[in-house]
Structure formats: structure tokens, C-alpha cells
């Protein structure tokens, strides 16, 4: 529709505006495998020394592999929890004639908009009282609870697209409501479940403030907290090391995003916070 209007000035303007971002991400790669003379940003040698953190654990810090495992545990567990709980609750809100259904729907909307991070002081104290402070389980539960309203809302949307007739047919065929959900409806929303799982995983993988406040201990440290504490340590300033750890940390995100971009952009646009 705009074919007769030239687009290169727009492309140029956008390129200029995007330059700082591109620069930052390009140098995230470059700096991890090269050295540059002081005061210059043109690399003059290739090196793998910045990656030594992979096999050599600095004193007073947990091993990177331990931390990575924690991150993996944290992100997959929250994703699994979010997916399981949301696919159950989302179905109820989409399809079942429960008492106070309108109230539940409105509740999910309010929770979705409500910034749960404001509750962190209380959650911090509650976890201390129940003994889940500084445990992965505690922070996993909290993260899952915070991501859950969005998950429920997304799953409800996916269920809404499944034709009612399929459920009606299932009931006529003699299946219980549970069987209808489990055997007939769930398979229809598989792509949605996959997208939500991916999304929740990435949210968990990137999460910083919750583990920072609720599980800062060395045994349960996740990559975000580990990297933040590396950066915050004024005595050992090594930007190339930070970036290498950063790239190591971000690689799964980039890979997943590269392969499942389409899935993710929709969900991100569909109403996350930030």
C-alpha cells in the first residue's frame, strides 16, 4: 500500500536509533573472545582466557556449573508449575460452570495487573517464618505464583479457541468432564502449552530480584544472582569476564528465541509486565 513511497529514509533513521543496542549486543560477543589494547575497542587478539570461569572456580564463589544447575532447576520447575496449574485453572475459567465464575475471572485479571513485587517484603518474612527462606523450593513457589495469573489468562485464551462441539461430542460419547479435558481438549491446546512453557522458562531464567532477596545463599544461587554479585564486587573488576559469564547465561535465551520467535513475540505482546 505504500509501495510508491520510498522507505529507505525510515530504514536509515531506525538503523541510527537502533545502533546503540546493536553495538552493545555485538560487543557482548566480541569482548568474550578477544582482547583489545587499553582505550581502544578494536580487538587485536583472539583469546579464550575470559572463559576460564567454566573450569576454574574463583575463591569464595560457587562453581558456575552448580549455579547453572540451580538456574535450570529454578526455571524448569517454575515453568512446569505454571503450565500445570494454568492449564488446569484456565480450563475452569474457559469452560466449566463453577460457582462464582465471574468472580474468579475478574480475580485473575486483577492479579494479572497487580504488581506482586510490592509484596516481596511480606513474602520474605513469610518464607523466613515457614523455613523456606534461602531454599530453591521457596523461590520457585513464589515465582510460579507470580507468573501464574498471566499463565491462566493465556491458557484460558487458548481453551476459548477449542470448539465447544468437541466437548459436547465427548460427553455424548460417554466421557466424563475430566476425561474430556484430559483426552480431548488438552491435545488441542498443545501449541499453547508449549508456548507458555517456553515463556515461563525464559521468565524464570531471567528472574533476578526474587532469588536475590529470597534465596541469595551460595548453595541456591542462580545465574542472575551469581553474575550480579560478580559485577558488584569492586575488587575484581573484569568486564570481559562479566560478559563471558553473561553470554554463557544468555545463550539458551538467544537459542530459544531464535527458534521460537513467532510463538514468543505474541505472548510477550499479549500482556506481560515491564
Amino acid at each position: 500500500m505504500t509501495g510508491h513511497l520510498r522507505s529507505w529514509p525510515i530504514v536509515l533513521a531506525l538503523s541510527v536509533a537502533s545502533a546503540p543496542l546493536v553495538l552493545m549486543y555485538v560487543y557482548l560477543f566480541v569482548d568474550t573472545v578477544t582482547n583489545a589494547p587499553p582505550g581502544s575497542f578494536v580487538p587485536n587478539e583472539f583469546t579464550l582466557e575470559h572463559w576460564s570461569f567454566l573450569w576454574h572456580t574463583p575463591r569464595g564463589r560457587p562453581s558456575i556449573w552448580r549455579v547453572t544447575l540451580n538456574s535450570l532447576l529454578f526455571a524448569t520447575s517454575t515453568a512446569a508449575l505454571v503450565v500445570v496449574i494454568s492449564s488446569m485453572a484456565g480450563y475452569v475459567l474457559s469452560r466449566l460452570n463453577v460457582p462464582a465464575r465471574g468472580f474468579f475471572l475478574a480475580g485473575v485479571m486483577v492479579l494479572h495487573a497487580f504488581p506482586a513485587i510490592t509484596l516481596i517484603v511480606a513474602i520474605f518474612l513469610v518464607l523466613q517464618v515457614v523455613g523456606l527462606y534461602n531454599t530453591l523450593i521457596g523461590v520457585i513457589l513464589v515465582k510460579a505464583a507470580i507468573d501464574m495469573p498471566l499463565g491462566i489468562w493465556l491458557m484460558k485464551g487458548f481453551y476459548d479457541t477449542v470448539p465447544w462441539e468437541i466437548e459436547m461430542a465427548g460427553i455424548q460419547d460417554g466421557a466424563s468432564r475430566f476425561t474430556v479435558w484430559r483426552k480431548l481438549v488438552l491435545p488441542q491446546v498443545k501449541p499453547g502449552i508449549f508456548a507458555l512453557a517456553l515463556f515461563a522458562f525464559l521468565l524464570g531464567w531471567g528472574e533476578f530480584i526474587l532469588p536475590q532477596v529470597l534465596a541469595p545463599g551460595g548453595d541456591v544461587q542462580v545465574l542472575s544472582v551469581y553474575l550480579a554479585s560478580l559485577i558488584a564486587d569492586d575488587n575484581n573488576f573484569d568486564m570481559a569476564l562479566f560478559k563471558s559469564v553473561g553470554l554463557f547465561y544468555m545463550a539458551p535465551v538467544l537459542i530459544l528465541f531464535f527458534f521460537f520467535q513467532g510463538h514468543l513475540m505474541n505472548i510477550y505482546g499479549g500482556g506481560t509486565k515491564g
Binding site: L21, L28, L202, W205, G206, F208, L223, S224, L227, A228, I231, G246, L247, Y249, M250, V253, L254, F257, L264, Y268, G274
Partner: peptide, 8 residues
């Protein structure tokens, strides 16, 4: 910026 972990 949105998909990158905030620390990085």
C-alpha cells in the same frame, strides 16, 4: 532488551 536477562 526484553528477552535478555535483566542482569546482562
Amino acid at each position: 532488551p526484553r528477552i535478555s536477562p535483566v542482569v546482562i
